[in-house]
């Protein structure tokens, strides 16, 4: 932790100290300390990102270079062979497509249902509103291991295991509460005055919604969609239990079976992992600020 005993002279306001030498010394001390922090910061950043770097760089190495006694720090020669091998794996592409299908379905459903509900929760007064908000929060405490048993038994009875529709239903159990929570925060953050002003100026409720809330909440809407997509894409346990047929499995389950059944082709595994992570990293980078705000905002502010 950062415990420096000397009071930090960073911003002593106004130029009231005419003597030059002490000031320069101070500035020097500050520069040294700052460089120390910077060095630490760079180190921490490197340590954090190293596993990711290692995945990506391993995916571009040749087989021999992967199995060196002394690790090769940069891939040279640089090769796409591992990617070719990953794509050549049985069911890799099919699993990717299954994932895309399920993720799209779950995110769309969650967004439509969630947006309607969030609008009502953030903007309308009705009986049981408070209770519903609390329910939406409390429901997120239900662990997936608790749900997986009855979900499996029920979908099994309904003949919906090994089905994308069944999996989408299961995914809604964790995507939907989060969607409502985040959207509600974003909608509530749009000042009510704006909407009321628009209505005073003669807008109908619908118009006020379309012209005021929708544009202002749009970034939040996008962020929530992306977040729903990420959650569904990353899910493993439901897919693992509910999909038993190989040709139905999603990409996360495929990765798992690839590790356990194929022995280990580390190059292809790292290439496949990179491919699975890539879209998520890109999406994530776009919305990162919104997500951090959304998760906490849902609870602390209206």
């Amino acid at each position: 932790m950062a415990i420096s005993t000397a009071p930090d002279p960073v911003r002593i306001p106004t130029a009231s100290t005419p003597g030059r030498p002490p000031r320069q010394r101070r500035r020097l001390g500050r520069t040294v300390r700052r460089s120390g922090w910077n060095l630490l910061g760079v180190l921490v950043g490197l340590v954090m990102i190293f596993p990711v770097y290692w995945m990506v760089s391993s995916s571009f190495k040749t087989g021999i270079n992967l199995r060196r006694v002394t690790p090769q720090w940069f891939p040279s020669p640089f090769t796409f062979d591992s990617y070719a091998r990953a794509f050549a794996q049985p069911r890799f592409l099919g699993s990717l497509l299954n994932s895309v299908l399920v993720v799209t379905g779950a995110a769309l459903a969650a967004l439509v249902i969630g947006f309607l509900a969030a609008l009502a929760l953030a903007r309308m007064n009705f009986r049981g509103r408070g209770a519903l908000v609390i329910l939406v929060i409390a429901i997120q405490m239900v662990p997936i291991e608790g749900l997986i048993i009855p979900m499996y038994l029920m979908l099994n009875k309904a003949g919906l295991t090994d089905s994308a529709f069944g999996l989408i239903l299961a995914y809604l159990s964790f995507v939907l509460p989060f969607t409502v929570w985040m959207l509600r925060g974003f909608i509530a953050a749009v000042p009510k005055d704006l909407e009321e002003a628009a209505m005073v100026d003669g807008c109908s409720r619908g118009q006020a919604f379309r012209r005021i809330i929708l544009p202002l909440a749009a970034p939040g809407l996008v962020a929530t969609t992306v977040f729903a997509v990420i959650q569904a894409w990353n899910e493993y346990l439901f897919a693992y239990v509910l999909l038993k047929k190989n040709d139905k499995q999603t990409i996360t389950v495929w990765l798992d079976t690839f590790i356990t059944t194929k022995g280990v082709d580390w190059g292809a595994l790292m290439a496949a992992s990179t491919l699975v992570a890539l879209p998520i990293v890109v999406l994530f980078a776009l919305i990162q600020r919104k997500v951090a705000a959304g998760i906490t905002a849902g609870a602390v502010k209206g």
Partner: peptide
């Protein structure tokens, strides 16, 4: 940090 955050948990296993 954001890159690590974005890693699907399942990817952390093979890595």
């Amino acid at each position: 940090l954001v890159t690590v955050w974005a890693m699907p948990p399942i990817i952390a296993m093979p890595i």
